[in-house]
């Protein structure tokens, strides 16, 4: 390639240096957060990145004396359940709308698409009343029910299923597979990249969700990580090393997943972003 042989121009070096500085700035909050989580209270007001005596005591305190482990579990549970449900239902609806011809198909599609226009903030008040009337306040089902299916996911999956050739599906029909099995065993695997994109977005969205969990939960046993962290930080006001430890615990899982699956995640974000 010509590019490799070309001599490195000074312009490029400047660009590289600026990009490097930018990258350091981008990472600064995260680095300082982790750094503070390993410090004792009396060192927290010093700029030094690495403590003279690093300690795990903040983490130990956090896990022994607060409900972080529980919140962690709740967050995982809620994010996983929502993701599985969204993957299944959104692709089922997207598949049906893409591959079946029936009366009312267009209407259903437009109706579902129109839900994209409704901001969550408008729905939380009716949802809260709904949850109260069904006795779902402060429960797992109450946390999960608004996100069992999403209009965006249906739209995304429909786009992808449309590019699946009908021949594949017809061949399976001739083999005598039931329609449901054609969907799960033939069609779903063909759109695996789209599914992984949807999974990433849904999981991340639920993992970081704040407004609805804040509204629907009241007892600490049902908090998700963001709600727990918010109330914890309020109570530990200004014990910054503890707050940073909590923030680090909330951030770590997605960072680890990213380090292992970087390629897939970025591809998924592009796929989801562009088609959606």
């Amino acid at each position: 390639m010509a590019e490799i042989k070309a001599p490195i121009r000074p312009g490029k070096i400047i660009i590289w240096c600026l990009l490097f500085i930018g990258a350091v700035i981008m990472m600064t909050p995260i680095i300082f957060m982790f750094s503070a989580s390993f410090k004792y209270n009396d060192e927290i007001y010093e700029l030094a990145l690495i403590s003279s005596e690093p300690t795990l005591s903040n983490y130990i305190y956090l896990f022994e004396n607060t409900e972080f482990l529980l919140w962690f579990k709740n967050s995982i549970l809620v994010a996983l359940a929502s993701t599985v449900s969204v993957l299944f239902f959104d692709s089922l609806v997207g598949y049906t709308l893409a591959k079946f011809r029936f009366r009312g198909r267009k209407l259903v599609f437009i109706a579902i698409l129109s839900t994209l226009m409704i901001p969550t903030e408008m729905l939380v008040i009716p949802w809260y009343i709904l949850a109260r009337d069904f006795g779902l306040l402060d429960s797992y089902i109450g946390l999960i029910f608004p996100g069992i299916m999403t209009g965006l996911g249906v739209f995304l999956m429909k786009q992808f299923f449309e590019s699946v050739p009908d021949d594949y599906l017809d061949a399976a029909r001739i083999d005598g597979l039931s329609e449901f099995r054609i969907f799960t065993q033939i069609a779903m695997p063909l759109v695996a990249p789209a599914l992984s994109a949807l999974a990433i977005f849904t999981f991340l969205g639920n993992w970081t969700a704040f407004l609805w969990p804040l509204i629907v939960t009241s007892s600490a046993e049902l908090f998700t990580i963001p709600v727990g962290l918010s109330s914890f930080s309020g109570e530990f006001q200004s014990e910054w090393e503890m707050i940073m430890t909590g923030a680090a615990v909330a951030t770590l899982p997605t960072l680890l997943v990213f380090l292992f699956l970087q390629r897939y995640i970025i591809r998924g974000v592009i796929l989801g972003g562009l088609k959606g």
Partner: peptide
Amino acid sequence: QTTFPYAQ
């Protein structure tokens, strides 16, 4: 006895 965080 049931308790809630002060803020809520």
